[in-house]
C-alpha cells in the first residue's frame, strides 16, 4: 500500500488536546471529530487538509490522553499517515488498533518541509520526498503489529482467532469492525 500527499508540519510534543480538544469528546462521530482535527494547533487545518495528505511532526506525537478520538479524527480528516521521530505510547497503540499507519523516522521528520509532496510505502516503510527527491527509511513495524494491520486491526484479529473467519467477511471503519453474517 502506498500513500501520496502533501506534508503538513507540526512541532514537538503535539498533545491529544491539540489533536482533538476535550470539549468535543461528548461525541465519537468520526466526521464531527474530523471537523475539529488539530484545531488548537492550527485552527484552519480541517479545512485545508486534502485526502491523502500526511502529517509530519516532531518527537512524542500524540502525548497526553488515551482518547482514541485523536487517531479517529486524524483518519477521518483524510490524513493517510503520520511521520514523526517518536510517538507517545498510547497513541502508537491506538493508531495501529484503528488502522492509522504511523512511521517513526527522525531524519524525514526533521528534513521534510511544509507543502512537500511525499510518497510512503506502508509495507517497506520507505518515505520519498518527491519535491526534493530524497528518500528515507522508517523504523520497521514489529511483525505482530503487521499481523494486526493485515487482519484489519485488533478487533478483526481477535475475531479471526475466535471464530476462525477470514478478514474478508469483516468491514472496519474508524470506530470498529462489523462481521458480515
Amino acid at each position: 500500500m502506498k500513500f501520496k500527499g502533501k506534508a503538513w508540519k507540526f512541532g514537538e510534543n503535539v498533545d491529544t488536546d491539540a489533536i482533538i480538544p476535550a470539549r468535543y469528546l461528548n461525541t465519537s462521530d468520526p466526521q464531527e471529530l474530523a471537523r475539529h482535527c488539530m484545531e488548537d494547533a492550527d485552527k484552519e487545518f480541517s479545512k485545508k487538509v486534502q485526502p491523502g495528505d500526511i502529517i509530519v511532526a516532531g518527537k512524542n506525537f500524540g502525548c497526553g490522553s488515551s482518547r482514541e478520538h485523536a487517531p479517529i479524527s486524524i483518519k477521518a480528516a483524510g490524513v493517510s499517515c503520520v511521520i514523526a521521530p517518536s510517538f507517545a505510547r498510547i497513541f502508537y497503540r491506538n493508531a495501529f488498533n484503528m488502522g492509522l499507519p504511523i512511521f517513526e523516522c527522525e531524519e524525514a521528520a526533521n528534513e521534510i518541509r511544509e507543502g512537500d509532496e511525499l510518497e510512503v510505502d506502508a509495507d517497506s516503510g520507505k518515505i520519498v520526498n518527491l519535491t526534493t527527491g530524497k528518500s528515507y527509511q522508517a523504523h520497521p513495524i514489529p511483525p505482530f503489529m503487521q499481523e494486526l494491520i493485515r487482519d484489519g486491526g485488533l478487533i478483526a484479529h481477535i475475531l479471526k482467532e475466535r471464530k476462525n473467519i477470514t478478514s474478508s467477511q469483516m468491514t472496519c471503519d474508524p470506530t470498529g469492525c462489523k462481521v458480515k453474517r
Binding site: 488515551s66 482518547r67 482514541e68 487517531p71 498510547i90 497503540r93 491506538n94 488498533n97 484503528m98 486491526g153 485488533l154 478487533i155 481477535i158 475466535r162 470498529g176
Partner: peptide
C-alpha cells in the same frame, strides 16, 4: 492506559 479498542478487546478476551 490504552485506547477504547484495546479496552474492547480485553472486555471480550
Amino acid at each position: 492506559g490504552v485506547g477504547s479498542t484495546d479496552l474492547a478487546a480485553t472486555m471480550i478476551t
